[in-house]
Amino acid sequence: MVDPKLVDFRKGYINEPIRKGFGRGLLTLGKTNSDVVACCADLTESTQMNLFAEAYPERFFEIGVAEQNLVTVGSGLAAGGKIPFVSSYAAFNPGRNYEQIRTTICLNDRPVKIIGSHAGVSVGPDGATHQMLEDIVLMRALPNMVVLSPGDSIEAEKCTIAMANDPQPNYMRLAREASAVYTTLETPFKIGQAYVYEPGEDLTIISTGAMTFQALLSIDLLFKDGIDVEIIHVPTIKPLDKKTILASITKTRACLVIEEGQIAGGLGGAVAELASEFFPIPIIRLGIQDRFGESGTPTELLQYFGLDANHIRLAAHKVLLNRR
């Protein structure tokens, strides 16, 4: 196991929106890679593209509220040899422009970097229309697409920089709200790699995005219950790091998957597909259970939808009852 060099979060941690890391990463790319360009659909500050837009105005293109144009202009920029990052809210990008992404980016194999911010229920007060929950399944089903879901702002920064060097189309989902920063500059990150953040013997907990912090918070709760959990953080949902996941579940023979999105076809779906083919074990998928979100504070909503450490604890006991 690689030492994840996480923040000692039991002693304290800071909160920062994950998208801030994207903004910093893109600004760095502006300096280091002259082929990187950016397009935004009227949400430049909201998606943190403003840092790049201000520093490199000649390489930034405002698209207006036109998400179909956003990705098709992106496809063209990539055809012209550029590395375009195209951003909006996940509900519209890829929510509004799926076919254009499918044909002009994936079938066409153009390395467009799609940024969907404000994903998940933690968008909060904006309510169901803006809480994108189906982006992972939409993007995961597309051939050629790489699906990324960094866990905090520091990882998002690393992920953004890595995307510019990846030859494939990429989708990166970002949450809106201030989220716990639990990784450090030294924490390893590579596209395609899952990381064991906490080694354990009794139960595998697999999570992505900000949900990994909730998983980390459940370690001590479950330890008190006598359950030694192994936490695997999956920032790359596709291609899935099968090796790391199979190594863990063949050892623990029980698994929980946690994500801030629909359980159908998301990370939970991906893990269940893998397990069913190679090592069938009981799995519980925590996520949004085939319904839409609603307005509220992020904390209220995560609790209501069963995505906090306490619900993880309950689900852990439940899945272990079914272990054979």
């Binding site: 360009v37 000649e58 390489r59 293109f61 179909q68 144009n69 098709t72 202009v73 992106g74 496809s75 063209g76 920029l77 990539a78 055809a79 012209g80 040899g81 550029k82 375009p84 076919e99 254009q100 044909t103 002009t104 079938l107 066409n108």
Partner: peptide, 23 residues
């Protein structure tokens, strides 16, 4: 480019033209 689904060619052409302008 790959095409068939309608309405996306003009945008792609715009993106390519912008890339050429940058170059």
């Amino acid at each position: 480019s790959t095409s068939g689904p309608l309405g996306s060619g003009l945008s792609q052409a715009a993106g390519i033209a912008l890339a050429f302008r940058l170059n």
